[in-house]
């Protein structure tokens, strides 16, 4: 077990503070990517580190502290997503807005964020998680399979579905099936 993990597991308050300082931004980024809502992501970060605080003495050091926290965050986000009522967005709506707004200077960053948010929100929970982990978090399919408790093949299939879905949103539904 690394030094920080050992101190955390022993209940050292300083270690907890250090863990929060070191990892909370990354956890926020992950939660935001998955949830696409700043306030929800902040609440989720607080929830994640509250769990870390309450469970710290059960940390066994089999993985690094970060991996442990990351898994807690993923599980909470995934559970949250599945509970959230799924909304469907008409493809034409997103496609039209994309045609109008897709490329623009920095001032359009907010707009882009909104569009990307709508696209990602159009994905069902599992596809959405896998897409975020692969595309934004740069995880391997093996790692994704481990944290999502699934097979490499099925993680990859979810990613492919997600990409096809997203591409369809952008190109308005035209299709290629070889």
């Amino acid at each position: 077990m690394d030094e920080l993990g050992r101190r955390l597991a022993e209940g050292d308050e300083e270690a907890f503070t250090e863990v929060v300082e070191r990892f909370s931004r990354q956890v926020f980024a992950l939660c935001y990517r998955v949830l696409r809502d700043t306030e929800e992501a902040k609440d989720m970060v607080q929830e994640v580190f509250t769990r870390v605080y309450l469970k710290r003495e059960s940390f066994k050091g089999r993985a690094s502290v970060y991996t442990w926290i990351y898994r807690i965050a993923l599980n909470l986000c995934f559970t949250h997503l599945k509970r959230r009522k799924a909304e469907t967005i008409p493809i034409e709506d997103v496609a039209y807005r994309l045609a109008v707004d897709a490329d623009g200077p920095d001032s359009r960053l907010e707009e882009l964020r909104g569009i990307v948010g709508r696209m990602i929100e159009a994905l069902p929970p599992r596809q959405r998680m896998v897409f975020v982990l692969r595309f934004y978090e740069k995880m391997s399919f093996k790692e994704i399979a481990e944290v999502m408790k699934t097979s490499v093949g099925s993680a990859k299939a979810s990613y492919h579905f997600a990409i096809k879905h997203l591409r369809q949103l952008v190109s308005g539904g035209e299709n290629l099936e070889a």
């Binding site: 909370s24 935001y32 902040k42 882009l112 569009i115 595309f135 997203l166 949103l169 952008v170 190109s171």
Partner: peptide
Amino acid sequence: ATLDMLARDEVPQIEPAFF
């Protein structure tokens, strides 16, 4: 083109006091 656009999306900055 789809992935380029998704890659340009950034996580919003929030108040540092939160962290």
